[in-house]
Design a protein around this nucleic acid. Structure first.
Length: 364
RNA sequence: UGGGGUAUAGCCAAGCGGUAAGGCACUAGACUUUGACUCUAGCAUCUCCCUGGUUCGAAUCCAGGUACCCCAG
């Protein structure tokens, strides 16, 4: 069973599986209901035109074109309970979660799989750009579209029952295939924003679930108030936009960036200029760490790590291994390593482990 | 109510007679299956606190007014 989103990637994935001789069925998932979920503020799609229904129509056309049956399934409650509540809780505690990683873990590769099982399938498949070969999760051939980052918290069991038909293709090739077989979505723009929710004005979106709590923005170097914020939970480390801090007398030119926050005091800490020491760290404690490698994880080993999606691999050394967490140290300062985000360890192309960034520190 | 200083876009700020730099913020777009970062573009055209005056021409000079700041009382 293939998860058809209405986009070009999953459509081509389904096509390729069918071409390969698999018996393919598909399902369109809908996991977010703006009305039921009070998704009002910051939602650009007010009114009757619902992008999800447009996507469903696209998926139907794709299924029809490919001659495969298309089911429709909702995991709105599961998404809310397993992904969104966690998402909100993290923001409330001042962290910056990555909901899509958990959406994969609990919805796409769990709830969806259970649904697929009711149709007696052997495998599920998605349009992710990633590879799972010989028990190893690997980056996609198209490194610019590689999505192994988002799959890094899956288990071997989840990965081994999944096919990734796009793992060895370039995005460009996927679009060419879609075009060559006349798929309606061949030139459809890639979707962005939180999976199943979509593009939102983020601060306003959060305000639907976390009430505003305005407070002071403080220059952490001079201990001066330089502005007012809407609520510390709406900002993330390294953030520039949305601070609204203009020119200030006797200050140099330059933008301001978030470097910290105090939930209790509702204070947001910032620095001017993107070269401030406050923005950079080398050490990170990674909790809920899951090891995917087929050898032993030990102190002293070096890997490449992504502290956020699409970040080039950063060389790090493992300096501590605990039962459920590890501590790593990069060989050079890294900007805005952010608690709540997922840190993924790679050994070249192989994803060997991942966990949640819990805290960061300067070297030494 | 003596003296001095400043008044330029939301903020900081160039310009000192020749027809409004720059930065920040903001907005839009690009990038992006999280949030960010980044990049590109836009952003004072009866306008430079107000009113007169000098001049071919003023934000720039002069006079008066208004507001705020500082030092003295």
């Amino acid at each position: 069973m293939v998860g058809l989103s209405g986009g070009v990637d999953s459509a081509v994935a389904a096509y390729l599986l069918k071409q390969a001789g698999h018996e393919v069925i598909a399902a369109y998932m809908r996991n977010w209901d703006s009305l039921a979920n009070n998704d009002f503020l910051g939602n650009p799609y007010q009114g009757p035109l619902c992008p999800q229904e447009a996507d469903y129509e696209d998926a139907k056309k794709v299924a029809e074109k490919l001659g495969i049956p298309l089911f429709r399934v909702d995991f709105i409650e599961e998404y809310w309970n397993d992904v969104f509540l966690y998402f909100i809780k993290e923001y409330q505690s001042g962290r910056t979660p990555n909901p899509d990683v958990f959406c994969n873990k609990y919805i796409k590769f769990d709830a969806f799989w259970k649904f697929a099982l009711t149709h007696q399938v052997d495998y599920m498949a998605t349009g992710h750009y990633a590879r799972y070969e010989n028990g190893e999760l690997r980056k996609a051939r198209d490194l610019t579209k590689d999505q192994s980052y988002f799959l890094s918290l899956l288990t071997h069991e989840q990965l081994s029952r999944t096919l990734f038909p796009l793992g060895n293709l370039l995005k460009k090739e996927v679009r060419q295939i879609a075009s060559s077989i006349g798929l309606n979505v061949a030139n459809k723009k890639d979707s962005t924003g939180i999976c199943f929710i979509g593009e939102r004005h983020f601060r306003q979106f959060l305000q639907n679930y976390i009430p505003a709590q305005p407070g002071e923005i403080i220059d952490i170097e001079r201990h001066e108030v330089v502005g007012q914020h809407y609520g510390v939970m709406y900002y993330t480390l390294g953030q520039r936009k949305g601070l609204g801090i203009g020119g200030i007398k006797n200050h140099q030119k330059g933008s301001w960036f978030v470097v910290g926050k105090n939930i209790e005091k509702q204070e947001l800490y910032v620095v001017q200029g993107d070269e401030s020491e406050w923005l950079y760290h080398e050490c990170a404690t990674i909790t809920s760490f899951q090891w995917l490698g087929n050898f032993k994880l030990e102190v002293g080993q070096t890997y490449g790590v992504k502290f956020r999606y699409r970040q080039p691999d950063i060389p790090i050394k493992v300096i501590e291994v605990l039962s459920n967490s590890i501590v790593v140290e990069s060989f050079y300062p890294v900007r805005a390593i952010t608690p709540g985000q997922i840190a993924v360890l790679y050994q070249d192309e192989v994803c060997v482990g991942a966990g949640i960034i819990d805290s960061v520190a300067k070297k030494g």
